[in-house]
């Protein structure tokens, strides 16, 4: 595999993850727990989708077949999507949403930090811009993990249940994209698995501060996203997201 092909898969993993995270989060818009948080969640959804647009546009360029962000977002099926499994999980209650965001954001901060040094100029530029956003996202989701973890008896139970529901998808965040080893040996990206220690550290510290049980980092994890094997949820997300577009092939919106 050429470096360019490998980079296409790598950027696709990032872009799809941001898109599906943003999509799920946008389901909260108009239904948030209180106005201020409706606005905050939508802001973060907008950041994720903004990142997805940059990444998918870049993926299209790398692929070289003239596909746009919309071609990639709307005209691929679940098996062609490369987002991490965590992103596609249902929102559940606010506790589950927050803890899912927290795992993702902790990962994103490390990823964007590392990619800010990438010799690939475009990836570097996207990472630098995204890092500012991820840091804010992490501040937001981490604060809520603390509030819910150390809030009321009810919130403590709810967020623990939320964590339990998403935990087995944590490992898949670190699954290497197709051909990642080529990029690693060329020094373009870090080995994704190498980010894991630092992410786990953030998690451990936060869960401890939140007086929550720290999950088992060696638990059996689900994987498969980088081979196109997803959960049952993704195809539902896509059938909804792509419905209007696919009814009208060739139309402009």
């Amino acid at each position: 595999m050429t470096s360019k092909e490998a980079l296409y898969h790598y950027v696709l993993k990032m872009g799809d993850s941001s898109l599906i995270m943003g999509h799920r989060l946008s389901e909260w818009t108009a239904h948030g727990p209180v106005l201020e948080h409706d606005i905050a969640l939508t802001n973060i959804a907008l950041d994720y989708i903004g990142q997805a647009r940059m990444l998918l546009t870049y993926a299209g360029e790398l692929e070289g077949k003239g596909r746009s962000e919309d071609d990639l977002a709307y005209w691929r099926d679940a098996a062609q999507y490369r987002n991490s499994l965590l992103c596609e999980l249902p929102n559940g209650d606010f506790g589950q949403t927050v803890v899912k965001m927290f795992l993702f954001d902790a990962f994103q901060v490390e990823l964007h930090e590392a990619l800010s040094q990438s010799p690939d100029e475009q990836l570097k530029a996207i990472a630098i811009k995204s890092l500012k956003e991820s840091k804010y996202h992490l501040r937001y989701s981490r604060d809520w993990v603390l509030r819910l973890g150390d809030g009321t008896e009810e919130s403590k139970i709810r967020i623990a249940n939320g964590l339990e529901a998403v935990w087995m998808y944590f490992g898949d965040l670190f699954a290497p994209s197709e051909g990642e080893s080529v990029l690693v040996s060329d020094g373009i990206v870090p080995e994704t698995a190498s980010l894991r220690k630092r992410v786990e550290e953030t998690l451990r510290k936060t869960f401890e501060e939140a007086t929550m049980a720290v999950p088992d980092f060696d638990a059996v994890m689900q994987e498969g996203s980088q081979r196109g094997i997803h959960t049952e949820y993704l195809s539902y997300i896509l059938s909804e997201m792509q419905s209007v577009t696919r009814m009208h092939p060739g139309a402009t919106w």
Partner: peptide, 17 residues
């Protein structure tokens, strides 16, 4: 969740927000 392009999706999100 059904906006037919990503540009439309972000504009709508920003508007509802």
């Amino acid at each position: 969740t059904r906006a037919p392009s990503l540009r439309r999706k972000v504009a709508l999100l920003a508007k509802v927000q």
